[in-house]
Write a protein that binds this DNA or RNA. Structure first.
Lengths: 177, 177
DNA sequence: AATAAAACAGACAAGTCAGTACGATTTTAC
DNA sequence: GTAAAATCGTACTGACTTGTCTGTTTTATT
């Protein structure tokens, strides 16, 4: 990946995540990334395609970070609880902007945007499977339950701009184990 | 409320909910509501104010419908399970568009929109309290837990456009009671 | 040093955005 | 029937939208 393309993706990622997809204009992206508009359209066919590239890269990076936090702990309950430490870490790092995937899900009208929808669904399915794999030998039947609470933890802390809901949910999960 | 104002709110509500706040233009609203633009701005100072009016009215109507579904059941566990029947009902009626409040939360950049944020937070706080009141004598300590699962039920069914997650969560809740 | 690829600046299209202004017309109330 | 209030139509502002196009300059490779 050339430097320009990387700068475009970095900037678009930051802006899409911070202020939303529809509220971020192409002109804003090229201005902040310090590239020419033609350069952007040489790398990405449209704003939609840029969005998909953003989501796909975020998917990779997000999971890499999640795995790092979870797999630093020993297998078992502490790994499950680490899921929520990760949420708190991301809340701080990204000022409670929540989940990029769910945020964009709220912005798109589904009928025309099934390519984007597919990327979002895949991300969440992968997350659900990852939680299953972490839960594996301990309390297999709880995996979905913990996934649902994980989703709530992200959303409720985005809504109230505080870690309290995550802590509440972490306590609930503890009581389930 | 005059008929024009009502028509504006009806149309704006439908469009905001179906296609999102930022994707819905004032011109689209006045065209579909069959009113003059000056009439809209006589009733609502700005698009933001129209958004707040929309959320406040939806808050009322949404709770009225929720209460109707829940309080048709006898007090106790069946009322708690009815919460999720309500989610399924809304999913069908509104084609899995999820929660208007969370959708708009994803669209706004928080620093400038604290008035809107406040309405959204109030809605969720009221919901949390309502679930507490329904849970009251049966399993008081579970109220928050059920609230978090309720939120997930809405979001996951919006994401996958199907009732399956609600049914899964309803089963989880059953196992908790 | 020559060639090819990448990025550059900037103008342009064609449309949409929220919001204002103003005079004309209709509806409502007394 | 008259007066007041509501609504109407329409044009307009000024800024912003995504995307295209032309031609120039920079960068990297050989």
């Amino acid at each position: 990946m050339t430097k320009a393309k990387e700068r475009i993706l970095d900037t678009a990622s930051r802006l899409f995540h911070q202020q939303g997809y529809n509220s971020t204009g192409i002109n804003e992206i090229i201005a902040e990334a310090n590239i020419a508009k033609s350069t952007l359209y040489q790398h990405f066919a449209s704003k939609d395609q840029l969005c998909i590239a953003f989501l796909e890269r975020r998917h990779e990076q997000w999971f890499t970070q999640l795995r790092a936090v979870v797999e630093a702990k020993e297998r078992g309950q502490s790994q499950l609880l680490a899921l929520f430490d990760f949420v708190m870490q991301m809340n701080e790092k990204e000022q409670y902007r929540g989940c990029s995937f769910l945020n964009i899900l709220s912005e798109i009208s589904v009928q025309n945007q099934s390519a984007i929808l597919q990327v979002i669904q895949q991300h969440k399915t992968d997350l659900q499977n990852y939680i299953k794999s972490v839960t594996q030998e301990t309390h297999a039947h709880l995996a979905d339950h913990i996934y649902f609470l994980f989703e709530s933890a992200i959303i409720e802390s985005q809504l109230y701009r505080e870690q309290a809901p995550v802590l509440k949910i972490k306590n609930i999960v503890t009581s389930l184990l």
